[in-house]
């Protein structure tokens, strides 16, 4: 079974046309991979569908806008996968 990172990397590669080998856990989706907010909606949609969850994008964005969080906490891919795992765990709890 694919890890969360492997699954999300595949989604990013397919939705944003980025070679899989360029997608690594330390990369920031926006600043390193050049994904924009519209592309990220497609990625969020695909993650939601694949894992049967609703990732709280609005809450994350709100926290970023209010300077209560750093962009890396959500959008560096390793961190993103941790957040997604948290949402999956909360759903299964």
């Amino acid at each position: 079974m694919a890890t969360t990172f492997e699954a999300i990397a595949k989604i990013i590669s397919e939705t944003s046309d980025i070679p899989l080998e360029e997608i690594t856990p330390e990369k920031n989706a926006f600043t390193d991979l050049g994904i924009d907010s519209l592309d990220f909606l497609d990625i969020a949609f695909a993650i939601d569908k694949q894992f049967g969850i609703k990732i709280p994008l609005e809450k994350w964005t709100e926290e970023l806008n209010e300077n209560n969080a750093l962009v890396d906490e959500y959008f560096v891919l390793g961190k993103l996968c941790e957040r997604v795992d948290e949402v999956i765990a909360a759903k299964d709890a």
Binding site: L41, A44, F45, K54, I55, L57, E58
Partner: peptide
Amino acid sequence: EHDGSGFAK
């Protein structure tokens, strides 16, 4: 198709 957080399809 999907009701996401801040988006819908």
